[in-house]
Design a protein around this nucleic acid. Structure first.
Lengths: 352, 352
DNA sequence: CCTTACAGCTACAACGTTTTCGTGTTGATA
DNA sequence: TATCAACACGAAAACGTTGTAGCTGTAAGG
């Protein structure tokens, strides 16, 4: 086992000073050609690499981004991480991942654990519990300490920072319009409770579309699922709620704010003898593996998670590397969405 | 914006020495009660937290684990990460994620990027390209430098380190046996090329089961998909291969080495007019979202990714925190598997 | 022969901690 | 009164870097 050599051991071995070694390796003109050659050869031979931690301490920069998300077993979030990783790695940054599991407490702990010098900035999508508690002190304190935050998808209006979102209202309206255009007369929505910003906004878009088409909004057709935590664990609970929803509502079009709701609704609908898309047309939000491989393949809205990740990382790194960061106004980037036509809707859009 | 205070500023503010502050905060009995109280109060007020980087440099420990996986947009890997995170966080460790995208080069870069002091040890599942190139110098060099590695799922026999796997051979045999017990006469397998260890082993299990039941092995029934890279991008390619496979083979039972292959095969089968499980029974490997929400829900083998993650993290952290780490022999933990009975097989196992 | 210039190198401080080893004061004891 | 332990604190080194300032020797210029 050969330990990583430090400047010191190279210096001792070559009988020069530490500074000389450091400078030689950085090709400083203060050092003679001959010495440089010797040092470089030695460094290569022993595979010298500067110690990152020491550099971080000296430069007060870790070149590491902290990403905190509700759960990682979730296609949308992983595509976002992919995007973040892609851009960050390109710029020489590492990515450290923290999971909140939708828990406020874990989110706070994660933030504090990383805010002590481990990272240069955060990219975060807020936990549902945090949203429902409306307690954002950990976020504002972090920003106060000079650590920039970028929020994506689930954002908080009251916190001033860079944000990357999709236009949930417009996009949802577009989806519902598609159902209307496809001949649906009775359109329902399966959403989340209002404290989840994206759920609220998507419901708003749903209402807007109905209004625009002079269709009366029926409250009972708006189902707001209350899953504070990991939704994958309470499939039965979800199914039950959707089942009673179908009992109480006769809909021929359904807009779901995520693919799990959509898929589950399709499953329940099938159990009730409905065929898709003939009896019921469905559109989901967020394109993931489920949508693509569902039966029938689900028409969904693609949020372009990869791009959202890239944009988030770009925003953060730009701010980190911009010397006059404080003056720079906060930006909110709205990533475009697309409807991906598959087989749960009748009207197929000709344009890709 | 109030900057994080350091020991130095606290010391200056309170007119004591840095050492006194440090000791007071760690409740050393060298310091008088009165002083301790003052220091602690001040530290609390200004929300002092020791700088992680400085600690890392001093202790030569970062309390951070590097996890390198082929892709993150993959249910199995994310469950593993969840498991790693869970155990690691519990022990006060952070997790830094690197993606190889199945590329040898990116794997090497990631490893080197993190091996310079950023992390204490690695947990890795090797890229397909690395497996096919059979070039493992980056791994052995890392171990040589005293940085421990734990491999999971896709492991390399030639490299000596801790490993976490499932018994692919036995598990696969069990799955195939289930098909046989369910009345299948002509059983096929969709696997990967042999350089992917898990593909090879699962194929072996398939053969073993047939042998044990005195069923002749027909080479044409063994389909080895050659997807060196991200398989989600070449669904069409996959479908084509499976389509021709079905043209050439009439099977009533199918074992797929991952859920994507299984789902895709079901899709193709459906197109060919087969009904599942009546005409064709299917079992997949690796339980993910796809299996659970497929139509019909797919009978699969659960690899217990979360547990694999936990075991990997445990193995790594144990080694890191064990002072006489060098002597400790390398372990290979075999995580148990379960067949999850769903609706693509006929014979349902009574025991959960 | 004395400056001056420059090349080529070294010393030192700093980043924020912890820890070891002082050091001075106090009060008790011989 | 001299000695000593206990107490409360401070100085300094160390982790691995880098950058600035300083040092040394040689050669050129006056």
């Amino acid at each position: 086992m050969k330990q990583k050599p430090t400047l010191k051991v190279i210096a001792k071995e070559l009988d020069v000073s530490v500074s000389t070694v450091s400078k030689a390796l950085r090709d400083s003109k203060e050092i003679g050609e001959e010495t440089k050659r010797k040092v470089k050869a030695f460094a290569k031979l022993y595979n010298y690499r500067p110690n990152n931690i020491a550099l971080s301490l000296k430069n007060k920069k870790t070149k590491t981004l902290g990403v905190i998300i509700p759960e990682i077993v979730h296609h949308f979030f992983t595509t976002v991480i992919s995007g973040i990783e892609h851009y960050a790695n390109d710029k020489g940054y590492n990515v450290i991942v923290g999971l909140s599991n939708e828990s406020f407490k874990k989110e706070v702990i994660n933030l504090e654990m990383l805010a002590n010098g481990s990272i240069d900035g955060f990219i975060i999508s807020v936990a549902k519990e945090t949203l429902s508690f409306k307690d954002f002190h950990h976020l504002s304190e972090t920003i106060d300490q000079g650590i920039p935050i970028v929020m994506f998808d689930r954002v908080i209006d009251d916190i001033e920072c860079d944000k990357v979102i999709v236009d949930d209202v417009k996009t949802s309206a577009k989806a519902v319009q598609k159902l209307i255009d496809g001949g649906c007369k009775n359109i329902g929505i399966i959403s989340t409770k209002d404290y989840v910003s994206v759920g609220r906004l998507r419901t708003e878009g749903y209402k807007n579309a109905l209004n625009a088409n002079h269709i009366e909004i029926q409250k009972s057709r708006i189902l707001k699922i209350d899953d504070k935590f990991n939704s994958d664990d309470n499939i039965e609970f979800l199914e039950e709620q959707i089942y009673t929803y179908f009992e109480e509502n006769e809909v021929d079009g359904l807009f779901a704010v995520n693919e799990l709701y959509a898929i589950t609704a399709m499953k329940v609908a099938r159990q009730k003898g409905l065929t898709i898309p003939d009896d019921l047309q469905v559109i989901g939000f967020t394109d993931g593996v489920l949508s693509k491989h569902a039966f029938p393949p689900l028409t969904t809205i693609s949020q372009h998670g990869f791009e959202m990740g890239e944009e988030s990382a770009k925003l953060l790194i730009d701010r980190l590397e911009n010397p006059n960061e404080d003056e720079e106004p906060f930006k909110t980037i709205v990533v475009k969405t697309d409807i991906i036509d598959r087989e749960t809707t009748k009207l197929h859009n000709p344009k890709k």
